[in-house]
Amino acid sequence: MKVEERNVQFIKEYVEIEGHQNGLFIESIDFQNPVLLFLHGGPGFPQYSILKKSGLRWAEYFTVCYWEQRGTGMSYNSSTQGKVTLERLVSDSLIITNYLKKKFNKKKIYISGHSWGTLLGSIVVSQNPEHYLAYIGVGQFGRHFESNKHTYEFLLETASKRGDKRAEKDIQSVVFDRDFYKNQGYRRILGRYLNKFGGGTKRTGYSNWQGMKDLFTCNHYSWKERFNIPKGIFFSYDSLGETMAKADATLLAPRFDVPVFILHGVYDYQTSYKEAKRFYEKIEAPSKKFYTFENSAHSPFIEEQERFLHILRTDVLCSECSYKNPLCSFP
């Protein structure tokens, strides 16, 4: 279906891959604009509704495709999705890429990942650069174990600084080790303290409840799709948690043959700032830039939107043509 909403054209559709329906939301003020494929985080956590409610205006500059990955939200169907692996999602990403190129008559598109989506996106672009104009990593994934070690240390240090003895004792009761990804106690303290202490989705003013509320009140989802969202979150983590925990993005995506842009909040403890910097420093690319967002945690595109959009307009959109025309300036 296609509707028009406040000058933003909107499409909701499904692409079949191996007999399984993959859901897409596509938005733009002009479908002639450059196409950007957005890879959500989680794994299994769709972000269309959250970004829409934040007021992010990147559909003014791009035709933005929010693809819900196999096993997630609109793309959750236990009878057809099969086993979900990193390799399968890489393959799915390429199929969606080619679908968008054909639909909008583009030789290449942009691709942006957030959190888990940056691990997926890094691999896709590193292995298949011919399809992409640039890679944009927001909340860049590095090494998940080391990142979570930073998270645990942050939680403990923050509880101590605040004089919150109950929280400090609670966090200390959890042993952090290599099996952290299957430790229910560790997942519990993340849920209880990470947003509260300002290292989660946003530095301030966000909760797990708010995230689910945003998803369930999005009227572009059917009720069945809304109820599939929590199913997809649990299913995707069960399917990919170990893979994610043991991954090092610099080994899986060491070289890019396109420009790379990394945008990261200094207070991010879902994918730690230190690990994002390490990723940036180790990868090879014809050009690369790292942007520190001083007032953000895990979501600089929500927390510091004007700066985020300025970078997209002045740096990302000109990255492909600037070497041809140094005076290029996207309006």
Rank of each mutant, 00 (worst) to 15 (best):
P259K: 04
K289Y: 11
R226P: 01
V260K: 08
P230L: 06
A245L: 03
T243H: 11
T271Q: 02
S272I: 01
F227Q: 09
Q270K: 08
A253M: 07
G232T: 02
A247V: 08
N219S: 14
F256P: 14
Y273G: 00
E225Q: 14
F256C: 06
F256N: 11
N295Y: 09
Y221K: 04
Q270V: 13
Y280T: 00
Y267M: 01
D248E: 10
Y280H: 14
Y280C: 02
P254D: 08
V258F: 12
E294F: 12
R226L: 14
L251H: 13
F290L: 15
K274R: 05
G232S: 03
E294W: 15
G232W: 03
K282L: 10
A253Y: 15
H264A: 11
I283Y: 01
R226N: 04
K231P: 01
F234H: 15
Y291M: 07
W223T: 09
I283V: 14
D248F: 11
H220K: 14
Y273A: 02
M244W: 15
T243Q: 10
R226F: 07
S296T: 09
S222Y: 12
A285M: 06
K277H: 05
P254V: 08
Y237H: 04
V266L: 06
A249Q: 04
G265T: 09
T243R: 06
H264T: 10
L240P: 02
I233W: 11
Y269L: 07
I283S: 01
D268P: 05
G241T: 03
V260I: 07
Y291I: 09
G232D: 08
N295L: 13
K288E: 06
F234Y: 04
F290S: 09
S239T: 04
W223E: 13
V258E: 03
S296R: 05
F234V: 13
F279P: 00
G232I: 00
R226I: 14
I262L: 14
P286L: 03
S296K: 04
G241Q: 15
A285D: 06
E284I: 01
F235N: 11
Y237I: 12
Y221R: 08
I262A: 13
S239R: 03
V258W: 06
